[in-house]
Design a protein around this nucleic acid. Structure first.
Lengths: 281, 281
DNA sequence: TCATTCCTGAACGAAAACGATCATTTCCAG
DNA sequence: CTGGAAATGATCGTTTTCGTTCAGGAATGA
């Protein structure tokens, strides 16, 4: 079994067990030694999807229920987080926002919790973030919930969106090519088109790996949106192409630590002597 | 500080810390000894709202985000669970259901997960239960989300409900008196009236403590609903009154164990000699 | 083919947490 | 006022877990 696959299975097991699993439990289930598990846990903790506790692992990965959020590959994830940070900087307090589903917009939503905003969303994971929050008003867009991502879609969602107007819509896409934006689901793009119409300004969040790839369903041409937020690894060719379409382009910087983390953080800087053996008590 | 208050604060702290808190952490925060905490944790675990792990507590209380779900008093909670069990027995596979917010309907929803159903709900916690589930179709009713309970309300919710028809609506109420049903929020009762209109059959879930108390907003007269599910501690006077109104009454039995649990379960049964000393590798 | 590197599993001492017990305090009921 | 039950906090021996180290094996590249 591959190490990365094993780590995914660890996460999945933890999730299945309701957010926590003990180390002996995992070792038995996965047929590996506890030593290996410890190393995996350390890795998972560093990437932020799990938290170690004495005796086991705690799932902190964003949304326990949905399979979609399991496969956060660290590399992409850091890009998404960088993009989310850059996008959060574009948002002003008091804004009215429409947040799409998708992992990038979810990361953005996490950063927006606690700020005074009015949030409209059709995404269950995003809604959960704001539901308990007194600072933000939350409007939930209803509809048929698509199990894979926990997003409400369909005619009911579209109809409801037609009665809503927001300052900014923030959308995720699955692919971008010369013709425009794509997503993986027909119902989804229909709903997203309604989201675009409901907003004064449309912002698309997409990491650099999305560019040059199309997907099942066409969403909209490039010039239909006002702004694209991508990470700084986007090729100059695409940067030029975006700007020529008259779309504002925001490039999110990847923090140094994260660059390290992105390369499957190794190159153990000072070897193992960096072990923190701090004064306890 | 009262013991029960301290336990609530334990839960709250655990929740604030993202679902887990270590024992020393809690001891320091609450200014009590670890021994006391251990006893509290044991208690909380037995009532089902938390799970102990070596080194700390894990929050299992249904929905981490919402304050509403924190104060599940064990006594009421067992009643709610009994009612939920009885109500679940009324539901047939393949049914189309409309589930209200509220802790009793939430307990019911938990029991329904995994059954082939079509679920319509305006409750975020309930929706989360079914979002990842492939067996049930989920339709989310949108609207303005009321922070206290995570329920979508308002004109958008009502409008959406008018386009929906279900076999059964299951509602929670805050109080019942001779005039009928009450709830604590004006927007809520408006939305619930729309839920009643959307269903062929209306079922109200209410534990025995709700009877004889009214609340802020009038919902509907007794005879407007088809069935009430209550626990068996409902007074004969009220049983008679319900039946005379032509409403079917289902009384949920409280299991023996739960009766014990309700009386602040003690009488430590077989002591601790069950030490497992298993062979490790 | 050989050497290097990475991953894995086992072993061991150290540290942490557990349950149990006991003394003390608090709080009621008689 | 007093006796007893319940709750609390400290202590102690035991068990569990952790981090580290070391050795064997698989994969990779020269």
């Amino acid at each position: 079994m591959l190490a990365s696959e094993r780590r995914h299975r660890v996460l999945e097991l933890v999730r299945l067990r309701g957010g926590f699993a003990s180390l002996p439990e995992l070792a038995k289930e996965l047929q590996v030694s506890q030593s290996t598990l410890r190393r995996d846990l350390e890795h998972l903790e560093r990437t932020g999807v799990a938290r170690r506790t004495r005796g086991g692992v705690l799932y902190t990965g964003s949304f326990p229920g949905l399979p979609h959020f399991q496969l956060r590959e660290p590399a992409q994830w850091e890009k998404k987080r960088a993009i989310a940070r850059a996008a959060a900087a574009l948002i002003q307090n008091g804004d009215t926002l429409l947040l799409d589903g998708g992992s990038t917009t979810y990361e953005l939503a996490r950063l927006l919790v606690g700020r005074p905003l009015q949030i409209v969303t059709n995404s269950l994971p995003v809604a959960n973030l704001f539901a308990a929050n007194a600072f933000a008003d939350l409007v939930l867009v209803g509809g048929i919930v698509y199990p894979r991502t926990g997003v409400a879609l369909g005619s009911m969602a579209i109809q409801m969106l037609q009665h809503i107007n927001v300052r900014r819509s923030l959308l995720s896409v699955a692919g971008i090519n010369e013709r425009g934006f794509f997503n993986s689901n027909l119902l989804l793009v229909e709903t997203e088109r309604a989201m675009m119409q409901a907003a004064d300004e449309v912002i698309v969040l997409a990491d650099s790996t999305k560019f040059g790839h199309k997907s099942l369903a066409f969403l909209a041409p490039l010039e239909r949106v006002d702004c694209i937020v991508a990470d700084e690894e986007l090729s100059p060719k695409w940067q030029e192409r975006i700007r020529r379409a008259g779309v504002r382009l925001v490039l999110a910087p990847l923090e140094p630590e994260e660059k390290a983390a992105e390369e499957e953080q190794d190159a153990k800087p000072p070897k193992s002597t960096s072990r923190k053996k701090d004064s306890r008590r």
